[in-house]
Nucleic acid binder design. Structure first.
Lengths: 259, 259
DNA sequence: GTCAGTTGTTCTATACGCTAGACAACTAAC
DNA sequence: GTTAGTTGTCTAGCGTATAGAACAACTGAC
C-alpha cells in the first residue's frame, strides 16, 4: 500500500482543515465553506479542494450532501486521553479504557550520539533499543523509543517489555531511579512512525524526551515518545501563587477533567 | 514569496533526512551516503535526492564538498529557549536575552464557539481578541491569540497590551486570578501563523491552551499559544516519589539547564 | 601522476499535479 | 415552478517534478 502518495497542495489543505475540525474551530454539524469558496480562500483550484475533501470524507470526518453542502460530522470520538505532567495514565484504567502495547523492535546496538551524551555513556558502550506502540481501546496513540544501557537491559527479557512498564522492570531489577529530565516539543511524522500510528506522513506529533538518572548521576533510561495529538494531550492545573511583588503559577491538584 | 512550493518526493526525503540528523542518528561531522547511493536506497532519481539535499543545505544543516561528499554540519545552535511548566520566562532576562512583542491585531468581536464554552460566556457576549508575536533576540518564536471578556478588556488599552504582560494588566485592573487549566498539544502552521513565525506552511508547532479563571469560576482569559519547537520547548525536572507500592513522578526544582 | 569516487551542471523525455471552465444533478428557499 | 447555490463529473492544456543519462570539476588515497 503506497497510500502516502497525495498531491502536495491537496495534502496541505487537507491537513489544515483536519486540524481546524479536530480543534473545534469548525464546529461539528456546521457547514463548511463551499468548494468554490475554499478554492478562492486558499488560492487553489476547485479540483484541488475536492481532493482534500475526498481524503477527509474517506476518514469519515465530513459528510458531503449534493445540493446543500459539506458538513462536519459529529465525532464518534474516542475522546483524547489527557495526562498530567508526570505522564500518569493510571486513571485511565479506572475509567475502564483498555490500553495495550505492541513491541515493534528489540535489539542491542550502538546508540546514536544524542543518546550517548544524554545518558553519559562510555564511547562504544552499547544499549538495548526497543520500539513500542501503545494502544488505547485498540487504537495506536504513541510511539515509544527507549534506550537502556546494555548491562541494565539484560536484567529483563523481551517478553517482559511487551507487558510490564519499563520503569517497573528497572526498579524490580534493583536499579535505583532518582530523578529525570523531561522535555516536550513537537515534530512531524516520519514514514515509519506515520505507518505505526496510522497517520499520514507529515502529520503533527507531540514529542516527549525523558532522560532518567540513577543516584550516581548516570543515565539509566532514555525515552523518546511521540504522541498523536488527537488522541493524547498533556493537561495541567495551575494555581496563582506568590506575593504581590512576584506573582507566578504553580502546579495544583487536578480538578475534574472537564466533560 | 511563494516559498512553500517544494516537490513531493524531494520534500519527503528532506523531511526524513532532517529527522535523522536532528535525532543524532546521523552524527554531526559524519559523511552522508553519496547521492547515487541515496537515490538507489530511496528509489528516486538523483535529481530528486539533490533537491532534498539542496533544502537541507539552505537550512545550514549539511555541508557539501565537491569530490569528497556531503557532511552533517555541527549545529551552531541558537539554543532553544527552555521554559518550565508554569511557562516562566523570567530567567531569560537574567540570561541577557532580549524579548519583544509585536501586536498583530486587536479588536472586539464575537469569539468562536470553543472560546465561548471554555470561558463560560453568555451567548452573544463579545470578547477582546488580540494576536501577538513574541520575539527572542529579534527572532519570532511564539504566536499568541488571547480572548478576554469585553468588560475586562476595556480596563486597559491597546498600547498597554503591546508592552505589559496580559496577566499583569488583568490583575492591575482588579481582576482576581485564581486558577488556570493548561493543555499542551501539537499542530501544523497555517499560512498566517507560518508567515508570522517565519516558517513554511505545515511546519510542526507546539500548542498551548490556557484558560484562566477568577474566584467565581468564570473565565477571565483564554490564551492560545503556538511555539516554534526549534526555538522553544517545555522542560521539567522530575523526582521519583511515593512508596514502594505506588511509585510515581513528582515535579522537582530545576537543575542546571544543561549546557 | 593515476584512479576511483564524489558533487556540480546540463540535457531530453515522460509523468502528473494543478488550473480553468463547462455542464449535469441535486437541494432548499421563495 | 423558479432560482440561486451546492456537489458530482468531465475535458483540455499548462507547468513542472521526476527519471535517466552524460559529462565536467574536484578530492583523497595510493
Amino acid at each position: 500500500m503506497d497510500a502516502s502518495l497525495e498531491p502536495l497542495k491537496a495534502r496541505r489543505l487537507a491537513l489544515l482543515l483536519r486540524e481546524r475540525i479536530a480543534s473545534g474551530e469548525i464546529a461539528p454539524g456546521s457547514r463548511l465553506a463551499s468548494e468554490p469558496a475554499l478554492a478562492l480562500e486558499h488560492g487553489v483550484s476547485r479540483v484541488t479542494v475536492r481532493r482534500a475533501l475526498d481524503s477527509l470524507a474517506a476518514e469519515g470526518l465530513i459528510d458531503r450532501r449534493v445540493g446543500s453542502g459539506t458538513f462536519v460530522r459529529e465525532p464518534e470520538a474516542p475522546a483524547p486521553i489527557v495526562a498530567d505532567f508526570a505522564n500518569m495514565l493510571t486513571h485511565l484504567v479506572e475509567m475502564g479504557r483498555r490500553t495495550g502495547v505492541r513491541l515493534i523492535s528489540f535489539a542491542y546496538a550502538q546508540p546514536p550520539e544524542t543518546v550517548v551524551q544524554a545518558l553519559g555513556l562510555k564511547p562504544g558502550e552499547r544499549t538495548q533499543r526497543s520500539v513500542r506502540v501503545r494502544l488505547i481501546d485498540g487504537h495506536p496513540f504513541s510511539y515509544l523509543t527507549t534506550h537502556v544501557p546494555e548491562r541494565i537491559g539484560l536484567t529483563y527479557s523481551e517478553a517482559d517489555l511487551a507487558s510490564v512498564p519499563l520503569l517497573t522492570l528497572l526498579e524490580r531489577s534493583g536499579t535505583v531511579v532518582e530523578r529525570a529530565n523531561q522535555t516536550i516539543s513537537a515534530t512531524l511524522a516520519s514514514p515509519d512512525v506515520a505507518e505505526a500510528l496510522g497517520l499520514e506522513i507529515g502529520s503533527p506529533l507531540l514529542s516527549l524526551t525523558r532522560i532518567v538518572f540513577g543516584p550516581d548521576g548516570r543515565g539509566v533510561e532514555h525515552l523518546h515518545a511521540l504522541y498523536r495529538p488527537d488522541r493524547y494531550a498533556f493537561q495541567l492545573e495551575l494555581e496563582r501563587a506568590g506575593n504581590a511583588s512576584e506573582r507566578r503559577w504553580s502546579p495544583a491538584p487536578a480538578r475534574g477533567t472537564g466533560s
